[in-house]
Amino acid sequence: MMRKIFIALGLLLSIISAKAADGLLIKGRITTVNPVVISLNTLSGKLVFKTTIDKDHPDFSMGPVQVVPDLYVLTMGATKQEVFLSNAEVTINGYFDDKDSNSSSLEFSGLEEHLEMANFAPKQSYDLNLDTAAFKALKPSQLTALAYLFKAGKYDFYQRFLVNIPLNERISESAKWLVKRTDSLKNYIVGIKAPEFQLPDQKGKLLSLKDFKGKIVVLDFWASWCVPCRREMEHLKTFYKDFEKDVQFISISLDEDPLKYKKALEEMQIPWLTIWDKKGFNNSSLGKAYGFTSIPFCMIIDANGTVLQRDINNGEVLKAALKSITK
């Protein structure tokens, strides 16, 4: 009967039908030792309503107020939780420990729509495993809220959501965010011209992407501190010679510390071209230019400078792609 969904809060939610209301109404009875502020804000931070409870005043009621069905941020004390809400009645009853939320015992009702969406939510940070059944199971407003919960950096991923949201349904904050997010990723798709760069090789000679026009290029972004990067580089060593005739391999270090960069080069003995962006991973413009937020990250560029494949972080995937491209 009970179901844990608010992992951060350690709260309990009961499956009880939401009551119709003139708007969103959140009420209940929460016992607490110290005074606790309960508030609800939009994703952009606009306050919807707020109240305070204490040991002498455990009963509370906020609303009703008309809202656009969407994700909202429910705050209790120092604890925040994103929750999908619409114009219905939600009740919260139980005990809240403002010092240790995991010791709280709260029971929610009226959050069926949130539960429906949460069934498809990412299980962990940067999880991109989306069950496509969501597109049939959820309402457009729930879909835009779901898209917001995914930390994706891929145009195709968000475009799949957007094509399922009618224009007249793109009114919520999460929907507007989805439109902007999708549009911002258009520069990171297959088929566009790869951005230029000018960086020094090990001898200090400045090299640009245009220097390799006429040859297929593999750009591999890495850093000495990135263990998966170094592991995939060792994998690359086992097959790069099979493609060396047709492909120029270039590893771009995102190390800030020149000593660590040089030490890694000595340790790894990388047999293909290496260049260095001394600005480092956090300050380099390459992440924004090429559209990556984590490494290892590889992309394949054709002889005319067009992106053929991107978002590669696995040696076997790279090998298969090169086999297909070079035939």
Rank of each mutant, 00 (worst) to 15 (best):
K4P: 10
I15L: 12
I16C: 04
A21F: 03
T32L: 09
L43D: 07
L43M: 02
L43V: 07
K46C: 12
K46N: 14
L47D: 01
I53D: 14
K55N: 12
H57A: 11
V67Y: 07
P69I: 02
P69N: 05
L71T: 00
L74M: 11
G77R: 05
E82I: 11
S86R: 04
A88N: 08
S105T: 10
S109W: 07
S109D: 04
S109I: 09
F120K: 01
F120N: 07
P122C: 13
Y126I: 08
L128Q: 13
N129D: 12
A134K: 00
A134D: 00
A134W: 04
F135R: 04
L138I: 00
Q142V: 04
Q142L: 02
T144D: 12
A147G: 11
L149T: 02
K151H: 11
A152N: 02
K154V: 09
F157S: 07
F161T: 08
N168W: 10
E173H: 00
R181L: 10
R181T: 01
D183P: 12
L185T: 04
N187C: 06
Y188A: 12
G204H: 03
L207H: 06
S208Q: 15
F212S: 05
K215L: 04
S224T: 06
S224L: 06
V227A: 12
P228D: 08
R231S: 14
E234M: 12
K237F: 10
T238E: 15
K241E: 15
F243E: 04
V247H: 03
I250D: 05
S251G: 12
K260S: 13
D277R: 01
G280S: 06
N283P: 04
S284A: 03
S284V: 00
S284T: 06
S285T: 13
G287F: 03
G287D: 05
M299T: 10
I301T: 05
V307Y: 02
Q309V: 09
R310T: 08
I312W: 00
V317P: 06
S324W: 02
I325G: 08
T326C: 15
